[in-house]
Design a protein around this nucleic acid. Structure first.
Lengths: 187, 187
DNA sequence: ACTAACAAACAGACCGGTTGGTATGTTGGG
DNA sequence: CCCAACATACCAACCGGTCTGTTTGTTAGT
């Protein structure tokens, strides 16, 4: 049996979408990459490419959540946790050379104004990430309001730094973020 | 005479590229939007779509630079200037509903790993923006190193906040950035 | 002053390739 | 026997790009 085929397509497409964006990746490219035919794709995703994208975003959501939650469980202070997260991003970027993990700006910027379902999926993802940061900050004594602000600022700056790393072909922007963000963590 | 045709194409394409990304925008769409034919496009840009994109990025570069420089000239403190910049972005977002101005993540994430010339153009743009922030911060007494870091953090967080605004269909992320970034501006 | 020559600035038909999507098989386990 | 799980042939639409006109303003020769 192949319950695997569906998740194989999702895994493969997720990587491609993150790296190249939505429109840039053709169905044939995805299919070729995971050795699956069109019939299988439209069997599991009757609404085609966009349904596959949303499935990717949902899978990415779960993956990111468990990942970040694990890091936060391993580090007592949010200052340390956020640094560990950024270091992981840097590591990924250095080994793979492209975006992997928590960033999906490519999809956001292309699709947010075009497809509402996709926008919602992206929105949920960002909100989840921010929520984890925020919760941790509150337990460390920050007020609800400032915790929320700081958590959003973290989410935003990591996402932006990712873009800068791509253009600079360097991990320096992320390293700078890692250096400066902790300064925000004082009431 | 039509020296205008060329810049008309650049202006039109810039908006479309910023809003939808590179691959999502077809030549025919650009041509239709500014009522120009294919012959004219390939007359002014013999290397086609990508050459047009690079011309757009260069034009955007100049526009952004004069714009930001103007704002920095109008505001004594960089704290005020950065706030004015963000407010302008918020205003644009509220009136146009889509990305305008300083953000071009869509192009970065799609093209940075694919086309070196495009990556260079994007890189130059970010570096120019960061440079202005950085210079101003140095005149206010920051050390070269911390000024550079803070300037990069600003650039990144504004870019990231733009992404968040798009997904949330709200200007709140930018407003939060505007509230929290000034806290970084203390030696 | 008239015109031939030329090139810049388009216009529009045309092209091969690719796109997402569909319709019709085929196959294998329950 | 049947249906989920594919495979494959096929399709119109569109893609970026090229090609060959056509118009128009400028220049050069007589």
């Amino acid at each position: 049996m192949n319950v695997n085929t569906k998740s194989l397509m999702i895994d493969t497409a997720t990587i491609l979408f993150q790296q190249k964006g939505y429109k840039s990746v053709g169905l044939s490219e995805i299919l070729r990459a995971c050795n699956v035919t069109k019939g299988a794709l439209y069997h599991h995703f009757p609404n085609g490419k966009e349904e596959l994208l949303i499935a990717c975003l949902q899978a990415l959501n779960e993956e990111i959540m468990t990942d970040i939650e694990g890091i936060f469980r391993a580090h007592a202070l949010s200052k340390e946790a956020i640094q560990a997260i950024i270091e992981k991003l840097i590591h990924n970027l250095e080994t793979d050379g492209t975006i992997t993990g928590y960033t999906f700006s490519s999809i956001v910027s292309e699709m947010a104004t075009v497809s509402e379902p996709v926008r919602h999926a992206c929105s949920a993802l960002y909100e989840n990430i921010q929520h984890i940061y925020c919760e941790k900050l509150v337990t460390e004594g920050f007020s609800n309001e400032s915790a929320s602000d700081i958590a959003w600022l973290m989410t935003a700056s990591i996402e932006g730094a990712m873009m800068l790393c791509l253009t600079q072909k360097s991990t320096d922007p992320l390293k700078m973020i890692a250096r400066r963000l902790p300064l925000l963590l004082r009431a």
